[in-house]
Design a protein around this nucleic acid. Structure first.
Length: 435
RNA sequence: GUGCCUGUAGCUUAGCGGUUUAAAGCGUCGGUUUGUGGUACCGAAGAUCGAGGGUUCAAAUCCCUUUAGGCACCCCA
């Protein structure tokens, strides 16, 4: 029996060409966040299990996490999301931080699940949060950052839509407008969350089943239909539209439209789980009918930091998984062909290695990234290797070149070459990089 | 956890109403007389057909088990 070369179930190996794509995405993300003044933080991959239990979901911990005892019999869990950790960080320095905080992180997360499309056991997730702002300006900024993130890859606003809802509005609708009790309310919200996965008659049948006979007599289903079918907030019943959470959501969408985020729309069926979100929630959807799924989302979670026994801190944020994000970029052909990080591949002609060391070192000292073939194979083989590695330039070093101090630099994609002095090579290569 | 589908050279697959040396394309390596390419031509290496068991004179091909992967459900914190 030989060892398996397969990566562990649900994880990926990142060969250089894969890592290149990951770096491309992460670097672009970082550029956007930093443009908005967000600062990067990180936390351990391993957290005490209580951190996740605090949210009160035993079942998830037991079945969908990597949880085990360390050598000191402490129960630890591989982080499954960043929000509890970042809340812990903020709570720990609650008094001394300079609010508002604008923080981001790109952690790898672990979930014990059966892998499927867009969903693995280890994945990376970009997290962006703003702490310490209670007003909708923060919600607005977070959505603006989310929008800018997608745009920065060259996406058009027709390629995605930003759906918004308000958890407080849903609570108002279910508790006050429909008059449901808390059990009915939870069941209904959960059901609406799955609405798009089933056919309309099936969905409405299940809705009817939630209501009591008297509620059915009061035509609650019809009332709910009017809400869930609303394409805009104007289509809502007057009483609902006039409620405080609806007003707030309306104001936010208006703000977003004002700044050109025209693809922000109200979606009464958007639920986004039902755990720690307290107010505005949003999700970014791919509009491609082939891949009409949620790419990422976020919202306001004002209650979480208070769980650490400190005064609560208002918080808004979003998170995007690397797998779904990359799927989006690929399906819209937004991933460029990425060249190697190496600038120049040196091809040695004949037995010249010892004399080639010096000029090669000079190039590196001037900031050119140089790899040398070292195999002593025939030139055509060496050139093929450079091509395969996607290195933009080949540099030939042989007797002639060493004698003249002029080296043949070949731009492989163009099949053009010229003899240049080292200093000139540096400028040519750096110029290419800037393109 | 439940259901459906799949597993043949490094990759993509053919062969799957059983029978002798398992086929092709791509890739890899080498060559086409030695200072220049992805094309062309020639050649080579490379598979106990995921694993285990069974039926049979005979199995990649049929049956069972197992394992790995994919997709959907569940869930999605």
């Amino acid at each position: 029996m030989s060892l398996s070369t397969q990566p562990y179930k649900g994880t990926r190996d990142f060969y250089p060409e894969d890592k290149r794509i990951q770096k491309y995405m992460f670097n672009k993300w970082r550029d956007v966040f930093e443009l908005f003044g967000y600062e990067e933080y990180d936390a351990p991959v391993l957290e005490p299990t209580e951190l996740y239990l605090a949210k009160g979901n035993e079942e998830i911990i037991q079945e969908q996490t990597y949880t085990f005892l360390d050598r000191g019999e402490r129960s630890v869990t591989l982080r499954t999301e960043m929000t509890p950790s970042v809340s812990r960080l903020v709570a720990a320095k609650r008094q001394e931080l300079a609010y508002p905080l604008r923080w981001y992180s790109i952690p790898n997360l672990w979930r014990y699940e059966r892998p499927q499309k867009g969903r693995l056991r280890e994945f990376w997730q970009l997290n962006v949060d703003i702490f310490g702002v209670a007003g909708i300006e923060a919600d607005q900024e977070i959505i603006q950052v989310a929008d800018a993130t997608v745009l920065s890859f060259g996406a058009k606003r027709t390629m995605y839509s930003i759906k918004l809802n308000n958890r407080a509005l849903m609570n108002y609708i279910s508790n006050d407008f429909l008059g449901l009790d808390s059990v009915q309310s939870t069941t209904l919200i959960r059901l609406i969350d799955r609405m798009n996965k089933m056919k309309a008659p099936e969905f409405w049948g299940l809705v009817e089943a939630i209501f009591s006979p008297s509620q059915r007599d009061a035509k609650l289903t019809d009332k709910l239909k009017k809400i869930l079918n609303a394409k805009t907030m104007k289509a809502l019943p007057k009483e609902v539209a006039a409620s405080e959470p609806a007003q707030k959501l309306g104001k936010l969408i208006e703000l977003l439209h004002l700044q050109g985020i025209s693809n922000a729309v109200y979606d009464p069926t958007l639920m986004r789980g039902f755990d720690y979100y307290t107010d505005i929630v949003f999700e970014v959807f791919d509009t491609d009918p082939e891949n009409n799924r949620s790419m990422f989302g976020g919202g306001r979670y004002d209650g979480l930091i208070g769980q650490f026994g400190v005064e609560p801190v208002p918080s808004v944020g979003f998170a995007a998984g690397d797998v779904t994000f990359q799927n989006f970029l690929e399906s819209h052909e937004l991933l460029p062909v990425l060249a190697s990080e190496t600038d120049v591949y040196v091809i040695l002609i004949g037995d010249v290695y010892e004399r080639a060391i010096k000029p090669i070192q000079e190039l590196r000292e001037m900031g050119v990234k140089v790899a040398v073939d070292l195999t002593g194979r025939k030139m055509d083989k060496q050139i093929k290797t450079a091509l395969k590695k996607n290195i933009p330039y080949a540099l030939f070093i042989g007797e002639e070149e060493l004698k003249k101090g002029q080296f043949k630099l070949k731009e492989l994609a163009k099949n053009s070459e010229e003899s240049l002095a080292l200093a000139r090579i540096v400028t040519v290569v750096k110029d290419y990089r800037r393109k």
